[in-house]
Structures are given as structure tokens and as C-alpha cells.
Design a protein around this nucleic acid. Structure first.
Ligand SMILES: [Mn+2]
Ligand SMILES: [Mn+2]
Ligand SMILES: [Zn+2]
Ligand SMILES: [Zn+2]
Lengths: 143, 143
DNA sequence: ATAATAGTTGTAATAATTATAAGTTTGTAT
DNA sequence: ATACAAACTTATAATTATTACAACTATTAT
């Protein structure tokens, strides 16, 4: 599902979170850039629009959005936290060659084993690393 | 499978990695503490044995071990990299209340969707977050 | 309009990790 | 055993990501 900017604004109102200019811009950026951007990417891009923007605000905003369940944290790679506006269950594949992070569907619930039946699960992540088809064919060409 | 200390020494020899005192101690610690320790935990504990130990050495050693495939990196939580001597495919559950990381079996290969058939997959991780049974029962008691 | 509240900003502090260069250990050849 | 080179370790400095803080600004309610 692709949550629209308007949907998200509505969600925020319901959750009683103020729709400040900066917050709206962060959400807008995330809906238009579904590449799982880092804080730095979000900050650098929004700064063009909002010259006074502070990186602290980006951190604060993302913390608020994650806490309210509107945004999801992706830590597929050590040392670079990324953010995803799509909170529905799906897996992530990161290409070691080009760095792209791909989404893929995965039915993880069906494979959670019985030993976890007494555990309360709040969050699920499936992360794969490898090489994407485009990079594979590039590697072949250069042989 | 529980790789023994001796097995791992053998593996290192095969891969032509020097069995320095510090490296052996790191491996020994990981085989005896299968709690997915952080760099800091490994460092602090080994320092008792090796007073001259440097944290840089712990970082260097872990990098070497990960590169050679003897150790696995766990980034279930943002901001704390952990290490696992068990490299075989299994999932991780982190309790948000007590911080314990539990292992569980998972047949992830069977659920990788067709859209990824052209991707080369080098690494797979399944991370769950929630509350463990012990913490759940503690919470109930205190109500 | 005023006061209270929430949000933003710049700067400083913290923490994890990496880079560097000097010192030490280890392995190999003589 | 000795000497030399390569590999490893160490302490320190530098880098990077993130959080803390306090002053400032915008928003909301009265
Ligand atoms: Mn995604
Ligand atoms: Mn494990
Ligand atoms: Zn690629
Ligand atoms: Zn627990």
C-alpha cells in the first residue's frame, strides 16, 4: 500500500500530533522518495526548501513519526539508520554493489516457530544482503 | 550447531589467519558467552585477563572474524552492534524489557519470493522485537 | 491580546567506530 | 640461535552519528 501525503496528514491529526511545517516536509519527502533515505539525505534535500532547517529537527521529527507508527526504521546496514514510510510488513534487500535497498513481499507470520508462541512480537524485520540483477549483469559485461 | 573452540581454531588455521593470543581470547569468549555481546562487553571482560588489551584490537579481530565468515554481525538494535559465533541460519528476538536476545529456528529460504530469483543472496537476517515470557509474567505480577 | 504550550534551532556533549603511527610479537630463512 | 620481514597490537587522535540542552519562535487556548 502506498500511503498518500493526505492520508498521513489525517493520521497525524488523529494521533494529536501537530502538523508543523517541518514535519509535513519530512513526511512529504518520505512519500516522494521511497528509497529508504538516511537522516542526512532527508536533511540535505529539505534544506533546499527550508534554509533554516536544523538536523536536530529531522531527528526529532523522525523519532516522533516512528513512535506514532507512521514511519519504520530500517537498520539493514550497521552505521546507517534509514527510514521507510511504508510500515506494512515487507522485507528488504540491500545490494552490496550499488547500495540500493529493494522491497519485497514476505509472509513472515507463517514462519514464526512455535517456540515463540509465548512471546509478544511488536516488530518484524527481514533483511537480505547480496547483489542485485543489474549489478550482476554489469559485472558480467566487464569480464 | 555449537562450534567448539577447537573447531574454530582449526578453521582459522585453514583460512591462514594467525592465532594470536588476543584473537584466541576473543573467540573463546564468544564460544562461552552466546548472548550476542557488544564490542564493549567483549572488551571489558577480556581486559580482566589481558590488562594491556586495546579496544582497537577487539574491533580489528571482529572485523577479521566476520570477513572470514566465522562470526556473524547482529544489528537488531540501532546503535549497538553485536556479534554471534553461531553463523548458521537462525532468527533473533530482542526483548524490549530485559534486553535479552533469543535465538530461534527459522526456515527463511522457503519464504524468499520469486521476485528475488535473479538476486544473489549472501546474507539473511530475521529480527523480531517484543517482550519475552519472563518479562510478561513479571509485568502481570506487578499489576 | 496574553499567556501557556509545543516545536525549532544552534551549539555542545556523548558515544561508537576508524585512521594512524609507533611499538611488539611472530614466523622464516640463514 | 640470530636476524629480518611481515603481521599484530597498542595508544592516541580523528571522524561520524546521535542526543542533550537552552534560547528562540510559532501555535493554541483563554
Ligand atoms: Mn521498504
Ligand atoms: Mn544467535
Ligand atoms: Zn546493485
Ligand atoms: Zn525480557
Amino acid at each position: 500500500m502506498k500511503p498518500s501525503f493526505e492520508d498521513l496528514k489525517q493520521e497525524l491529526k488523529i494521533k494529536n500530533i501537530n502538523l508543523s511545517h517541518q514535519r509535513l516536509k519530512v513526511i512529504e519527502f518520505l512519500t516522494q522518495n521511497r528509497c529508504h533515505p538516511t537522516v542526512d539525505q532527508i536533511f540535505t534535500n529539505l534544506q533546499k526548501d527550508i534554509p533554516t532547517l536544523s538536523k536536530t529537527t529531522v531527528y526529532n521529527t523522525l523519532r516522533t513519526l516512528v513512535a506514532s507508527g507512521l514511519v519504520r526504521v530500517i537498520t539493514i546496514e550497521d552505521k546507517e539508520t534509514r527510514y521507510d514510510i511504508v510500515t506494512e510488513n515487507h522485507g528488504h534487500f540491500k545490494c552490496e554493489s550499488c547500495g540500493t535497498i529493494f522491497d519485497f513481499p514476505i509472509g513472515i507470520d507463517s514462519m514464526i516457530p512455535g517456540v515463540l508462541s509465548k512471546f509478544v512480537i511488536n516488530d518484524k524485520n527481514v533483511y537480505l544482503n547480496g547483489v542485485c540483477p543489474r549489478c550482476l549483469s554489469n559485472l558480467n559485461e566487464n569480464k
